[in-house]
Every structure is written in structure tokens, then in C-alpha cells.
Design a protein around this nucleic acid. Structure first.
Lengths: 252, 252
DNA sequence: CGGCCAATTGATTAAACTCAATCTGCGTGG
DNA sequence: CCACGCAGATTGAGTTTAATCAATTGGCCG
């Protein structure tokens, strides 16, 4: 499981633009394509902590590419229960397959301070018309997103609390590694135990106790927000990930 | 070939081709577009009950459009636990955003006898190039699929057993209605309680008891596989669906 | 008539939740 | 610089939802 590795270097310098870096891990991006992509991401905006970027029911007319920071897709139930549907990390696109029916069925909120780029949907059509390889790579992003959500479903439906935590930590380590934000066996976890509980469908108390147990078992260690995967092999065994996530771990 | 056994030869809309019918609910499909789409779906195949169409780890080179029958996307864990990730209904596309990275991260299996059409990925590119409105409608299908999976996540993570069952029944009623396979307040449920438990992340025993309770509460009734939604208003109240699913119930 | 699978039912167990305190780190106003 | 306040983390105790285990029943098919 190589996250920062040499394969990427073969394709050229890893870009400091997360989306480019992510695509570069899958395809070889030409200079022209890179320029075009960078041109898409000109229109930057910044939002602070805990701010809704999109609210359930909103019509949204634009796509967003997260440049830095963490955000959530989430939904609130009537009585206040919250489910975090997925975590948005740098390089992720919000509203990639946007179309004329634009009503959001869930909200998106920043967890940390975030910088993102606004992209006009027409520009994405442009990619389809002019850059077939890039277009295919965007399809890959769509499929990947779907796969991740599918795994979240497995996690919530059939994993124990112990397995859920491990499975999530591996997902995050993998995804962060893809954009150069994780080390070989550690990363910065920008989530409170409250957030974790709403991702994993558990109570905060149980998340706490499960993290304790994982630490005691020597699988992980946590200092403030810094997570170290102490025994990756055993973690992978616990998490029961699809083969495809392991064979080519850095690219899913 | 026909789900209900009777041939419905309508010359005007709605079409008896589920995918066309689904798209027709969102956009106005021109004659030319309809012909093109029908041309895509020439290459039919039939599989029997409980047969894997795609297996986790497979490379798949083709997309599939389900014409009739029910199927599952699912994943098996080492010890035999199964999570059904989503149900595939007539008109649904498997592998819509296929690209050169084609390793499946989950399996797809028929629940009933199924007829589906094989579609070459290049034909989908053709749609993008030649039929922008159709292409946008396919994007809608992608987004819709994602929204459904997002709701599944909420269901598994933050709903009680009681809410989960209701939420799923409403999802299925909605989706089946879109392709003309549901009545106003009832539909044929092609799932065993075992299947339900693996969708909902519950044990079969608990699914059984929950169905009993829903029946006793006058919310639903079930005869063999035929489900009647006895009190849609209360069901909707219990399920806590996103507004967007309600405002335009038939089209999500 | 068996045999098999799913549905049903009862009894018991267990994973995870709720409730109720602290405790701790940190930012803010005085 | 320090007290205060707040949110998140930690801890203990008791409760509940849902799982497990173990039969039994019912329907269907060869």
C-alpha cells in the first residue's frame, strides 16, 4: 500500500493542485490538459468552519472543487439526528454530474476552513467535447465516489463498531494519500468524535470506547488529531475491504 | 420478456422500454432520440434467478440496462455476512460511467429472472457527442443513483428498524412507479425477508417482527409479495425523506 | 411423501445507546 | 495574566434495541 510512491512520480511531478494530482495518479495528464484544468479552477472562494455550502433543497447552478480543507455531505432528520453521508476532501468535486434538475437532496458543510473553486457546468461539457481522456478520468472520479459510498453502506449495514472505525480510517488514509495529504501510515484526522459517530452511525460514547480499544490492541494510536496506523496488515484484515481497494490501494 | 406477462403496445408515451420511460419522465424524448436509444438496447440477454452478472474483482467491458426483473448490487464479507448495496430495477443502468479502470468493487446478482441489454461503452460516448439532452438525462440518472445511495446511508446509519423498513418501501414504490411497475399505493415486492435484512442491516427475525408491527399499526399490508401502502401520509412522516423526494415524488 | 427454504415464534444474550457526571483544553473578557 | 465558559472527551451505570439461538410451521416442488 503505497500512497506517495514512485508510480506517481513516473507520470511527472505531483501537482499541488489536488484535483490534478488525483487525476495524475490515474492518467497521464498532458501539458495542455493541465493548463485547461488549472484554468477551470481560477474562480476561488473561501469559507470558514461549520458553514453550509449547499443546503438540502437548494438549487445549485455550479460545481465546486475542494482545494483545501474538509467538508461533509450530510442530512439532518426532523429530531436532530444527523447522518454524514460522506466526507469531502481536497481534490473532490461537488456536483460533478450536475444537470438541469438541480435540487440538492442533502447539504454540504465545511468542517474546517475551506478553499474551493467554482466551476461552471458548461466547462465540464467542454471537457467532454475536447479532452476525451480527461473526460474518462472524470468518469473514474464518479465511479470512485460511488464505490466509496457503496463501501460506506457495507460499513453501516454489516460491520461492527470496531470494524467500522478501522474501515473508515483506511478509507481516509487512502483518499488523503491520493492527493498527498497522508504519510505512509499516518494522517491528520480533522474530525471530532461527534463527527465520527455521525459518519459511523454510532453514539459518541461508543466511538470513544472503540477508539480506546483499538489503541489498546495496538492497531492505531492517536495524538490530538494525528492518527497513526500502527499495524496496517491487521487493520486491513479487520476492515474486509474489496480486493480492488487493496491491489491498487493508492488509486482505489 | 414482459414482466407482467401481457404485451403493452402503446404507440405514444409512456414507453414499454423502462429506460425510455424513465428518461421520458424527466425530459421530452424526440423520435430520433427514442430510436437511437432503442437501437442501443438491441443486444438482449436473459439470466435466471440468483445468477451473478458481475462479480467483485471482475473486469467488465460493457454496460447493462435492466429490461425486466430485479437484481442486487452486493458485497459478501469473509465470514458470510452480506450487505446489499442497492437494488437494480428495470430501467436502471449498471456501469453507466464505465471507464478504462473497470475493476468492480462489488458484485451484481439477479434476484428474479432478468432480461437486460448489453451496451458498448462507446455507444454512451456517442450519446454525449450527438444528443446533449439525452446526455444530460443520463447525468440525471447518475445523480439520482447517488442520491438513492446517500439515502440508503441515512437509513442504515440513523434510522430505527421501523423507520428503515418504511423508508425502503417508499423508495421502491417511488422507483417502480417511475417505470410504470407500481400502482398508486401498492407494488410487487420481489424480496425475501432475508434480502430485506441484508438491505436494511438487520436480522431476519427483526425484519419479520418489524413488518408485523407495521401491519398492526395499519401502515402497510402484505399478501405474499404484494405490498399495499395503507397510509402514505403517515409512512412519509415516519420515513423522513428529503423534501426533493416528496415535491416531485415520481421523478425523485 | 419427503425435503427444502423461508416465515414464524419464543427465550435469551449482547452490542450499542442513553443518561449523568466529571474532566480538559482553549479561547475570551476583565 | 487569570477566571470563566464552552465544547468535546472521558468515565460509570443502567437500559434498550436488535442479535442470536433454537424450534416449529407452512408452502412448494420433484
Amino acid at each position: 500500500m503505497n500512497v506517495s510512491g514512485k508510480e506517481i512520480a513516473l507520470l511527472g511531478e505531483p501537482s499541488d493542485v489536488p484535483l490534478l494530482r488525483k487525476l495524475g495518479a490515474l492518467i497521464s495528464v498532458s501539458g495542455e490538459e493541465a493548463e485547461f484544468l488549472k484554468g477551470l479552477l481560477i474562480n476561488k472562494a473561501e469559507i470558514s468552519t461549520e458553514t453550509d455550502l449547499i443546503r438540502e433543497g437548494d438549487e445549485f447552478r455550479s460545481s465546486f472543487v475542494l482545494e483545501s480543507g474538509w467538508a461533509f455531505r450530510y442530512r439532518l432528520l426532523e429530531d436532530g439526528r444527523r447522518q454524514i453521508i460522506g466526507i469531502v476532501l481536497p481534490g473532490d468535486v461537488i456536483g460533478l454530474n450536475i444537470n438541469f434538475r438541480r435540487t440538492a437532496t442533502y447539504s454540504v458543510q465545511s468542517k474546517t476552513k475551506c478553499v474551493f473553486a467554482l466551476v461552471e457546468p458548461t466547462r465540464i461539457l467542454e471537457i467532454q467535447q475536447r479532452y476525451p481522456v480527461l473526460s474518462s478520468a472524470l468518469n473514474w472520479i464518479t465511479v470512485r465516489e460511488f464505490s466509496i459510498l457503496a463501501e460506506q453502506t457495507v460499513r453501516l449495514g454489516r460491520h461492527t463498531a470496531y470494524e467500522r472505525v478501522v474501515h473508515l480510517l483506511l478509507e481516509l488514509h487512502n483518499r488523503l494519500g491520493l492527493v498527498g495529504l497522508a504519510d505512509d501510515d499516518s494522517f491528520q484526522l480533522q474530525l471530532s468524535q461527534i463527527d465520527l459517530s455521525d459518519i459511523l452511525g454510532l453514539s459518541t460514547v461508543h466511538v470513544y470506547r472503540t477508539l480506546r480499544r483499538l489503541t489498546k490492541d495496538g492497531l492505531i494510536s492517536i495524538q490530538s488529531n494525528y492518527v497513526v496506523l500502527e499495524d496496517v496488515d491487521r487493520l486491513i484484515e479487520v476492515a474486509d475491504l474489496p480486493e480492488a481497494f487493496l491491489e491498487d490501494f493508492a488509486v482505489l
